[in-house]
Computed example of a mutant assay.
Amino acid sequence: MRSALKWAGGKKKVVHEIASLLPKRGKTRLVEPFVGGGSVFLNLDFDEYLLIDMNKDLINLFNIIKNQPAAFIADAQRFFTGDNNDSEKYYQLRTQFNQSTDPYERSLLFLYLNRHGYNGLCRYNKSGGYNVPFGRYKHPYFPNAELEYFSEKAQRATFIQGDFETAFTQLNVSDVVYCDPPYSPINPTSNFTAYAGNSFTDEDQRRLVDYAKIAQKRNIPTLISNHYVDFTRELYKGATKKKLFQVQRSISQKGQGRIKVQEILALYK
């Protein structure tokens, strides 16, 4: 099942790779400290889910879809008209989003901006303003079926806004953890880690591994995704198991920037 959101770095196409390495025996709850678009949650079957992300707008949206699906779907669909698929209208609604303090209004506009904005990006400036440009799509897709499915599955999920540490402080022995942090850059020109208005540094990457090792000592397995580069090759050298595979990634706005890159799954178990 696809996510209702377009999401740069989304995991729908590699869920099978993740599932092949993610331990499930005796584990009833999936914990994701970086839930993002939610593709892993949507496509793996657990009794419960604890889903966390730094992005407040994302978590508000997910909780509203969970708790008010019919009203939200009806209200959101009104934004998906030909008149709104226009650069002038897009920037007007983006300004409205940035000025709004109402969680429900922001959630409606967040979905609109996500489906009409450029290339599945979710990006904020240092002042917290959403600044993704207009995407120029002929017919932006309204994800009705995806929203309904998400709402149904979300009844087994808890969504919390916060740093990934929040997830690791709430673990129990029946949990398994999947981490999809902002990736280490392939090269300096492709360094984009500020998807929630804050950067994710090399020190944050090390801190995540430290938490994975602490969970490992409690018999709680943690699986981490990342680009396979010199930094992560060294970072994950102590992992119990590693798996490498290639994925299609857009690393620039130009067509030739869409190349296959190598990713790593590092399991601490």
Rank of each mutant, 00 (worst) to 15 (best):
L5I: 03
L5R: 06
K6W: 06
E17Y: 12
I18H: 11
S20M: 04
S20K: 12
L21M: 15
L21N: 07
P23G: 13
K24H: 04
K24C: 09
R25V: 09
L30S: 10
P33R: 03
P33G: 09
F34S: 03
G37V: 06
G38W: 04
D45G: 07
D47Q: 15
D47M: 09
M54T: 05
D57Q: 10
N60C: 10
L61T: 02
F62R: 12
K66V: 10
A71Y: 05
F72G: 03
F72M: 08
F72C: 08
I73S: 04
A74Y: 12
A74L: 12
A74N: 10
F79I: 04
G82P: 02
N84F: 13
N84H: 14
D86N: 15
Y91M: 09
Q92T: 13
L93C: 07
Q96M: 13
Q96W: 06
T101A: 11
D102L: 13
R106H: 08
R106M: 09
S107P: 04
L108Q: 06
F110R: 00
Y112Q: 05
H116I: 00
G120D: 14
L121R: 04
N125F: 06
N125V: 11
G128N: 10
G129T: 02
N131R: 00
P133D: 05
F134D: 03
Y137A: 07
Y137Q: 11
K138M: 00
P140S: 08
P143R: 08
A145D: 15
L147A: 07
E148L: 13
Y149G: 03
E152F: 13
R156F: 00
R156P: 00
A157C: 08
T158V: 13
F159G: 10
Q161M: 06
G162R: 06
F164K: 02
A167T: 07
F168P: 09
V176A: 09
Y178V: 11
C179Y: 02
C179D: 01
D180N: 09
P181G: 03
P182Y: 02
P182G: 03
Y183P: 02
S184A: 14
S184D: 03
S184Y: 07
S184I: 01
P185S: 03
P185F: 04
P188N: 06
A194F: 08
G197S: 12
N198S: 15
T201M: 02
D202P: 03
L208G: 04
V209K: 05
V209Y: 10
Y211P: 00
A212F: 04
K213F: 10
I214L: 14
A215H: 02
A215K: 00
A215D: 10
R218D: 15
R218Q: 15
N219T: 05
T222Y: 06
L223C: 11
I224A: 06
Y228Q: 02
Y228R: 04
V229F: 08
V229C: 05
F231T: 02
T232W: 06
T232C: 08
R233G: 00
E234M: 11
Y236L: 02
K237E: 12
T240A: 12
K241Y: 07
K242R: 15
L244P: 01
F245N: 05
S250P: 00
Q253C: 04
Q256R: 09
R258D: 01
V261L: 10
I264D: 01
Y268G: 12
